[in-house]
């Protein structure tokens, strides 16, 4: 298939960006979106032009490196997929595809489609852990955990930290991201001893990093490639009120 690609190009954080248009031929429907971009780059380099910078690594939807707006949707129009797993089957021959980096104030553009997501790490550093050092753990089965809770904790823990929830939100809120981590620990007895300090610290850091507030539109949930549920945010709020 042939495609017209409108891609955001920006040399570095300080530079002014612009859309660049590329024509790309020879795209196969079984390619993934990042393989399509790799083909574009291969073509550009052979023409002596500058390739498009974008993050990608595992190509199986688990590392969270990739992420871009594709036709206005974080990770593209198909639910439950990262950019690297999005197949070109979902696009039509002759289509124009608009590709942009995450647009959110806490995620400044580094180059082209690459943004700086270190604000998410800072939230985790603030409290996203259980304070048990190596060597201090009790026997794993000494503390039984209700299977239902453990399964729910797992469902929240599958977040890949890609930032799509922030990008999808009109307020650039990180509530889904934060609530996933808070929920994982809130649901497990291991997480209870420092639950209050954790939620206070993570929320404070989230605000400090400039993420917006949640207005419950659910855009984050609909764009999350790991389908993390909105009810995590309700749990986060509950945990937060309990900690005040």
């Amino acid at each position: 298939m042939k495609l017209k690609l409108k891609i955001w190009k920006q040399k570095n954080a300080a530079a002014k960006g612009r859309f660049e248009t590329y024509d790309l031929d020879g795209v196969a429907p079984e390619m993934s979106f990042v393989e399509m971009l790799a083909l574009l780059n291969q073509t550009l380099i052979q023409q002596g032009r500058e390739p498009v910078a974008f993050d990608h690594d595992c190509h199986e939807g688990i590392c969270g490196s990739c992420g871009m707006y594709i036709n206005g949707y974080p990770h593209g129009p198909v639910k439950g997929l990262t950019t690297c797993l999005l197949s070109m089957r979902h696009f039509k021959d002759g289509e124009t595809i608009v590709i942009e980096p995450w647009r959110a104030k806490p995620f400044p553009v580094v180059k082209d489609l690459i943004v700086d997501r270190s604000a998410l790490d800072k939230i985790q550093v603030a409290g996203g852990f259980i304070s048990v050092s190596a060597g201090a753990a009790p026997e794993a089965n000494a503390l039984p955990v209700r299977k239902h809770n453990s399964d729910l904790a797992f469902d929240s823990a599958v977040c890949i930290g890609c930032g799509a929830c922030v990008a999808a939100c009109k307020n650039a809120s990180a509530m889904l991201f934060v609530s996933a981590k808070i929920s994982q620990y809130a649901l497990l007895p291991q997480g209870r001893p420092e639950a209050k300090e954790r939620v206070r610290a993570m929320i404070a850091e989230m605000d400090k990093q400039g993420f917006g507030s949640c207005s419950n539109t659910g855009a984050c949930e609909s764009q999350c490639p790991k389908q993390i549920k909105l009810f995590n945010i309700a749990r986060l709020n509950r945990e937060y009120y309990k900690a005040l």
Partner: peptide, 12 residues
């Protein structure tokens, strides 16, 4: 033991 204590949700 350690991973369980730091909240890794292993299957139960």
């Amino acid at each position: 033991d350690h991973f369980t204590a730091i909240g890794v949700p292993f299957a139960r």
